[in-house]
């Protein structure tokens, strides 16, 4: 799905989290929002997912105005920073949650839910953990379960907030490839937030560098590396 951000601004009280920013994300791209903390990247992601309301501006999905669309209607698969798995539910129930939450008319029968959850567990390569609770999983497993749960609702896009932030270096490298694979299999427009420039450059098709609520530069990783447009980008990449 093609995502267009049109002059989106967000203020919290008197603080400007986002100056009006505009951005067009092509359908099927894997996009990184890259920047230090406080750069507004998470706010922008949450606005896309419908978890925050922009102070002004519009969001367009496939050319249609989605600004007023409630979070439930956005069908955005959202992976939270610490995954926010439902701690009192098994992995199976976590992944099935979005399907069970559907109105009766469109809710799949139980057998179909089981089939879909099993398929998703295969996709994340953890076929045997359906009966476990989140507290019994490793960090990497939790991240993949959160991904499967987000994919279960057949989302129109995938939004991930620091998906690798809580993991150690080795697992991080493995899961990068995992996210790339899932993106390539599903073809979903995917946006992830990160403060790690190496991660952004290695994984994303498009990188959006942000600072202080503004977009500093957007482009292919190689182009940004070769031609940083602002002093901030040059310094941030050198760090």
């Amino acid at each position: 799905m093609h995502i267009e951000i049109d002059e989106i601004a967000k203020t919290f009280g008197s603080a400007n989290a986002l100056h009006p920013v505009s951005l067009a994300l092509p359908s099927g791209a894997l996009v990184a929002l890259l920047g230090p903390s406080g750069s507004g990247k998470t706010t922008l992601l949450r606005i896309l997912g419908g978890l925050e309301e922009p102070t002004s501006g519009r969001v367009l999905f496939d050319g249609q105005d989605a600004t007023g669309l409630r979070v439930q209607e956005r069908r955005a698969g959202f992976v939270f920073q610490h995954y926010a798995l439902f701690r009192h539910m098994t992995v199976f129930e976590n992944i099935a949650y979005g399907l069970r939450a559907r109105p009766r008319a469109t809710r799949p029968p139980n057998a179909e839910i089981t089939r879909r959850v099993t398929r998703l567990l295969d996709l994340i390569q953890l076929p045997d953990i359906a009966a476990r609770y989140p507290s019994q999983l490793s960090g990497g497993q939790r991240q993949r379960v959160a991904l499967a749960r987000a994919l279960a609702i057949e989302p129109r896009m995938l939004l991930l907030d620091e998906p690798f932030g809580a993991l150690d270096a080795k697992v991080r490298k493995e899961l990068r490839q995992g996210l790339r694979d899932i993106h390539d299999t599903t073809g979903l427009t995917t946006v992830f937030v990160t403060h790690d420039q190496e991660e952004a450059m290695e994984l994303a098709d498009l990188v959006v560098v942000m600072s202080m609520g503004r977009i500093e530069q957007m482009g292919k990783p190689a182009d940004i590396k070769a031609r940083p447009l602002t002093p901030f980008v040059r310094e941030f990449l050198a760090a």
Binding site: V71, Q72, F78, Q81, A84, L85, R87, Y97, G98, A101
Partner: peptide, 16 residues
């Protein structure tokens, strides 16, 4: 409130 937000993004109503 992350778990609550997760439920909402998965399509649950506030009540659910």
């Amino acid at each position: 409130k992350a778990e609550e937000e997760a439920a909402l993004t998965l399509g649950a109503s506030g009540w659910r």
